[in-house]
Computed example of a mutant assay.
Amino acid sequence: MSYEELLTEIALSDERFIVMTAENRALVRNIPAKLGNRFIDTGITEQTMIGAAAGLALRGRTPVVHALASFLTMRAFEFVRTDAGIPNLPVKLSSFIPGFLSDGNGPTHQAVEDISLMRGIPNMTVFAPADEDDLVKMLPQIWNHPNPSYVRINTRKTDYQHSPFELGKAEIIAEGEDVTILTYGLLFEQALIAVDILKNEGLSVGLINMRSLKPVDEHAILHATRNSKLTVTLEDHFLTGGLYSIVAEVLLKHGLTANVLPFALNEKWFKPSLLPNVMEHEGFTGKQIAEKILGYNTRFHQPQIAVPQFSE
């Protein structure tokens, strides 16, 4: 089932659902004809769309809103925070082309600080599905939850079949004593490749799909950092405020430290290109990830913080 098919099915079965867009219909091209006046296009007005969605939510509706990730999280930030987050209204943000998925676009259209921004909003929940299968398994619970939500929409098809979703729970793919990779969204595909390479080198490798970033699965993070010699955070996001920061917060909360090797963007946007070229140029292919992990000494005795592996 596709994103559009799922949204159509849910909206047709529940009249509370309103589908909205700020003149970005890529994910919902066929929905207007089926929903009639329950489909609203506000034009290129992300702030107006969020304000209207909040008004609808106050009247018992569940608006699912669509816009480019960069504009949904930054241009409309104050409206998301004030109109949806603070009053805790069920406004559901569907973020189009987040992270590296905005591959051909320059800095103004790259959302690589979105996780940081959205998880800092009171009551906001934050999710990043690994692929389309993960997406459609996650969304029914997210959309039926009373809190506002931000979802990094990922409609890429892969062969991986994900386990059922539980709000606030990570998906444990494998456990490893040498290395555990924590990742979310698009880079799950590359993590799978890296795991295979590392296993072929004789390492015991774990992989966790951190699909729910707020609420986050603290137990999964603690288990990984306690039971693996090295924990790797992998994300198409700035280092600040993303998964690396989340892991640090969880460890500090529990009075712990760990060997953590982060893969993230270091306060720079990525070079626009076709997606495979973007990932290779920035050092995020499965092969490059595995090579950097193999180059890091995992046979240590005292916990330490690893030197971050940034894209240059």
Rank of each mutant, 00 (worst) to 15 (best):
L6G: 06
L6I: 09
A11K: 00
L12H: 08
T21P: 01
E23P: 06
K34T: 05
L35R: 04
R38G: 07
D41Y: 04
T42W: 06
T45W: 11
T48I: 13
M49D: 07
I50H: 03
A52T: 09
L68D: 09
F71L: 06
L72Y: 02
F77K: 01
E78N: 13
E78Y: 09
D83S: 11
I86Q: 03
P87T: 02
N88P: 05
L93A: 02
S94P: 03
F96V: 10
F100I: 04
P107F: 11
T108E: 15
T108S: 14
A111Q: 05
A111W: 01
S116H: 06
G120H: 08
I121D: 00
P122E: 05
P122M: 04
N123I: 01
V126M: 02
P140I: 03
P146W: 04
N147L: 06
R152P: 00
R156G: 13
A170R: 00
A174V: 04
V179I: 07
I181E: 01
I193M: 12
V195C: 10
V195D: 03
D196K: 10
E201P: 05
E201A: 13
G202E: 15
I208D: 00
M210W: 03
P215S: 04
H223A: 14
H223M: 14
N227S: 13
T231L: 10
T233F: 02
D236N: 07
L239E: 08
G241T: 03
G242K: 01
Y244D: 15
S245D: 15
S245H: 10
S245M: 11
L252G: 14
L256N: 12
V260R: 01
N266K: 10
P276A: 06
M279W: 07
H281A: 15
H281R: 10
E282I: 02
H301K: 08
P303I: 08
Q304P: 09
A306H: 09
P308W: 04
